[in-house]
Design a protein around this nucleic acid. Structure first.
Length: 722
DNA sequence: GTAGGGTTAG
C-alpha cells in the first residue's frame, strides 16, 4: 500500500470523527503523519489488549517517535485498568513535550477522563480536583466541545458525587448522542433521582436518538429502583420489540426488575432468554430467588454454580457472595453464612463493599449486633447501603437511640451519603415501634425534601409510623396522596385502622383493595382478622379465615389462627377456640395461641380447659411466667385462694421471674429523647424530684377518685430519663 | 486510538 493513500484515508477518517464528535473547528488543524511509521502501534495495541500495561509502557518509552495515537492507545489501557495516576502522569508528559493541540485531542483526553471516572467510582475523594483542572484545560483548548470528552467528563463528575457539575456539562454539550444521553440517565438514577432519570429517558426518545441496549438497561434500572413496575413493563415492551431483551445486560436488568416485585417466574424467564449464563446471570438468578423468598433455591443455585466452576468460567464474584449471604441472612442461617464469609475471604472478596454490607446484614439479622458492628466499622469505604444496613440492624432490634445516633453520624460523615428509601424506612420503623411521632415527622420532611415521599417503601413506613403513633388522620393523608398502589401501603392502613378499633374502615379498605386488583398477603389478613376481633365479629372472622386459602391463596399461619382463637375466646366460644388450635400444624403450635386460649378461659372462669391450656403454654415456654400468673388470677377470680397461692408458690420454686414491665415516653425540650419508665430502677439522678411529682399526681388523682389499694405504684415506679 | 449500561448489599 502506498503511504500517500494510507495517509489521506487517515485524514478523512479523522475529519469524520471530528464532525461526529462535534468539534467546532473539525478539520482546522492537520496531523503530521510519518511515511514510514515504526511498528509501534500494532505491538502496543496487542500488549494493551492483553492487559500487559507494564510491557506496553516499556515499549512505549523505548520508541523514539510517538504520536497522539500511541499516547491514546496506552491511555485507554490505563483507563480500562482504572489506573488514574498512570493515566495522569502520561497525559502530563504529553502536555509538557508536545504542542498544545496534542493534549487537546479528544482521543487523548477522553481516556484520561474515563480513568478519572473509575477513580471517582472507587470513592477516591481527591479525584475531583484533578477533574476540575482537566475540565479547565478542556474548556481552554475547546476539546470540551467533543461529545466524547464532555461525556466522559460528566461521567467523572457524576461518579464523584457532583451531579450538579455533571448536569452543567450535559446542558452545555453542543450535541448529544445515545451514549451521552445514557450517561445522563444512569447518572441521575445512580444519584437516587430516578424520576428525573426517566423523564430524561423520555426526552431522549423524543429527540429522535435511537436507543440501544445500554440505554434500555439504564432506564430499566431506574424503573426497578424507583419501584415503578408499570413503567418497567413499558420499557420492557419497547426493547422486546427491537429484540434487545435477550442481550445479557438487558436480560439481567429485567430479571432484577421482576424479582424486585416478587415475580420470580418472569425473572427466571428473562434470565433464560440469554444464550449462555455468565457470572452476572448466575448472580441475577440467585438474587431473584432471594428477593422472592426462595432462599433455599438460591443456595442450591449457588452450589450448582460452584460445581460448574471448574468446567465453566463462571466463578462467583463479590456480587454473587453478597446475594447468597443475603439468602442466609433472610433465613437466619448464621453458620452457613459464616462459612461463606470464610469462602469469600479465601477468594479475597470479603472486604468488598457489597460482601461487607451483606455480612453486616447477616450478623445483625441473626442477633449478633456486635459482629455486624465490627464488619461495619472494619469496612474502609462505606456507602449509603452500609449505613442503612447497620442502622436497620439496630432498628430491628429496637435500639432506637443507636439507630438515630448512627444516622446522625452518617449525615456528618465526610462522604455524606444521601439517605435513601432504605435508610428512611428503617428509621421510620424505629419511630413506629417507639411511637416517636416527632422524630417520624422530621423524617417525613426529610423524605419530601429527598423526593422520596412517593416511594412505596417510604410511603408504607410513613403510614405505619403515623398509625402506630396514634394519628390515623396523618396516615390517611399520606395514603390519600399516593401516586401509585402497593399492597404494603394498603395493608399498613388496614392494620392501623384495625388496631385503632376502626374495624369498619379496616374491612371496607380490605374489600376496596381487592376491587382495585391488589392481592392481599399474610400481613393484610392479620389486619383483617384483628379488625374482626376488635369488633367482636366472630362469624366474619371465621369467614375470612376460611376464605384465605380458598379465595386468596394465602395459607393461614399460626398468627392468623391465633387472631381467631382470640376472637372466639373473647366471645366465650372456648370449645371452638380449642378446636381451631388443633388445625395449626403441630410443629407450628407455640405458646402464643395457648396463651390466647388461657386468657379466654381466665376471663370466663373455664377452669378445666384453662388448666390444659396452661400446661401447653408451660410446655412451649417452661421459662415463662405468664401461664402461672394467669392461672393464679383465674383461681383468684373464683375465690380459690389456696390454688392461686399455689401457682405463685410454683413460680417461686421454679425460679421463674416475671420481667419488669416498662414503658417509654418522648421527652420534649432542649434535650429531646425518649424517657424509659421501669419498675425498680433507681438510676435517675433526679429521682427525688420525680418522686415528688408522682406523689403530687397520685394525690391529685386520689382527690378525684379512689385509687385501688392493690396499686402501690407510688412506692415502686421511678422514672429514668436517658 | 476516545465516552455510557447489567448482577449485589438495606
Amino acid at each position: 500500500m502506498r503511504p500517500s493513500t494510507s495517509s489521506s484515508t487517515k485524514q478523512r477518517s479523522t475529519v469524520r470523527f471530528r464532525r461526529r464528535a462535534g468539534l467546532r473547528n473539525g478539520g482546522g488543524r492537520r496531523r503530521v503523519w510519518t511515511d514510514s511509521r515504526p511498528p509501534l502501534l500494532p505491538m502496543l495495541r496487542q500488549l494493551v489488549r492483553s492487559g500487559k500495561l507494564a510491557d506496553a509502557r516499556c515499549l512505549f518509552d523505548a520508541t523514539p517517535h510517538r504520536d497522539e495515537v500511541a499516547y491514546a492507545t496506552l491511555l485507554a489501557g490505563y483507563a480500562a485498568a482504572a489506573d488514574f495516576p498512570s493515566a495522569m502522569e502520561l497525559f502530563s508528559r504529553l502536555r509538557a513535550s508536545s504542542p498544545p493541540h496534542a493534549a487537546a485531542d479528544p482521543f487523548v483526553l477522553s481516556p484520561v477522563f474515563k480513568a478519572c471516572a473509575s477513580a471517582a467510582a472507587a470513592a477516591d475523594a481527591g479525584i475531583l480536583r484533578h477533574a476540575a483542572a482537566l475540565h479547565a484545560f478542556a474548556v481552554r483548548s475547546s476539546a470540551v466541545s467533543s461529545v466524547f470528552v464532555s461525556t466522559a467528563l460528566a461521567d467523572a463528575y457524576a461518579k464523584g458525587g457532583r451531579l450538579d457539575l455533571a448536569l452543567q456539562v450535559f446542558d452545555e454539550m453542543p450535541c448529544k448522542n445515545v451514549v451521552s444521553w445514557t450517561t445522563l440517565v444512569a447518572s441521575l438514577a445512580r444519584a437516587g433521582r430516578r424520576h428525573d432519570a426517566l423523564r430524561r429517558f423520555a426526552e431522549m426518545r423524543a429527540s429522535g436518538v435511537a436507543c440501544d441496549s445500554h440505554a434500555y438497561a439504564a432506564a430499566l434500572t431506574a424503573c426497578a429502583d424507583a419501584g415503578l413496575l408499570p413503567r418497567g413493563r413499558e420499557v420492557h415492551a419497547l426493547c422486546a420489540k427491537l429484540g434487545l431483551d435477550a442481550t445479557p445486560y438487558v436480560a439481567n436488568t429485567l430479571a432484577t426488575l421482576y424479582a424486585r416485585f416478587g415475580d420470580v417466574d418472569r425473572a427466571l424467564a428473562a434470565v433464560s432468554r440469554m444464550g449462555s449464563r455468565d457470572v452476572a446471570a448466575w448472580t441475577t438468578l440467585i438474587a431473584s430467588y432471594v428477593q422472592t423468598g426462595r432462599e433455599e433455591e438460591a443456595i442450591e443455585a449457588f452450589v450448582r454454580m460452584l460445581h460448574d466452576e471448574s468446567s465453566n468460567s463462571a466463578a462467583p464474584n463479590e456480587y454473587t457472595f453478597s446475594a447468597v449471604i443475603a439468602a442466609c441472612a433472610n433465613i437466619e442461617r448464621v453458620c452457613l453464612g459464616e462459612q461463606l464469609h470464610a469462602q469469600a475471604a479465601q477468594r479475597g472478596l470479603s472486604h468488598s463493599r457489597s460482601v461487607a454490607n451483606s455480612l453486616a446484614k447477616l450478623y445483625a439479622r441473626c442477633g449478633r449486633l456486635s459482629a455486624a458492628h465490627d464488619v461495619f466499622r472494619g469496612s474502609i469505604v462505606k456507602d449509603v447501603v452500609s449505613w442503612s444496613a447497620i442502622i436497620s440492624g439496630y432498628a430491628q432490634e429496637g435500639f432506637a437511640e443507636e439507630a438515630f445516633a448512627l444516622f446522625s453520624e452518617m449525615r456528618h460523615h465526610s462522604s455524606c451519603p444521601r439517605p435513601n428509601e432504605f435508610t428512611l424506612a428503617s428509621l421510620l420503623s424505629v419511630c413506629a415501634s417507639a411511637a416517636a411521632m416527632d422524630a417520624g415527622r422530621q423524617l417525613h420532611v426529610l423524605a419530601v425534601a429527598a423526593g422520596l415521599e412517593h416511594h412505596a417503601m417510604v410511603r408504607s413506613s410513613l403510614i405505619d409510623m403515623y398509625g402506630k403513633s396514634g394519628s390515623m388522620s396523618d396516615a390517611d393523608l399520606v395514603f390519600s396522596n399516593r401516586t401509585s398502589d402497593d399492597v404494603i401501603s394498603w395493608t399498613a392502613m388496614i392494620v392501623g385502622h384495625a388496631e385503632h378499633g376502626h374495624s369498619k374502615e379496616a374491612l371496607e379498605l380490605f374489600e376496596e383493595m381487592c376491587r382495585v386488583g391488589l392481592k392481599p398477603d399474610h400481613v393484610t389478613f392479620i389486619g383483617v382478622l384483628t379488625a374482626c376481633s376488635h369488633a367482636g365479629e366472630v362469624e366474619l372472622g371465621l369467614k375470612y379465615l376460611n376464605a384465605m386459602s380458598k379465595r386468596y391463596g394465602v395459607e393461614p399461619s399460626k398468627e392468623h389462627y391465633g387472631c381467631v382463637v382470640d376472637l372466639l375466646g373473647r366471645a366465650g366460644r372456648i370449645h371452638e377456640a380449642e378446636e381451631l388450635i388443633g388445625r395449626i400444624a403441630a410443629n407450628e403450635r407455640d405458646g402464643v395461641v395457648w396463651t390466647s386460649l388461657l386468657r379466654a378461659c381466665a376471663a370466663r372462669g373455664a377452669e378445666e380447659t384453662g388448666k390444659k391450656a396452661a400446661e401447653r403454654v408451660l410446655q412451649a415456654e417452661p421459662w415463662g411466667s405468664g401461664a402461672h400468673v394467669v392461672m393464679a388470677n383465674l383461681y383468684a377470680s373464683k375465690g380459690q385462694w389456696r390454688e392461686a397461692a399455689q401457682e405463685r408458690h410454683l413460680m417461686k420454686q421454679k425460679g421463674v421471674v416475671k420481667g419488669a414491665g416498662w414503658s417509654s415516653v418522648e421527652v420534649g425540650g432542649e434535650d429531646r429523647g425518649v424517657g424509659v419508665f421501669v419498675s425498680g430502677d433507681r438510676t435517675n439522678p433526679q429521682d427525688n424530684a420525680i418522686y415528688l411529682m408522682l406523689d403530687l399526681m397520685y394525690y391529685g388523682a386520689g382527690m378525684v377518685r379512689h385509687i385501688p389499694d392493690q396499686l402501690h405504684l407510688g412506692s415502686e415506679v421511678e422514672l429514668t430519663v436517658n
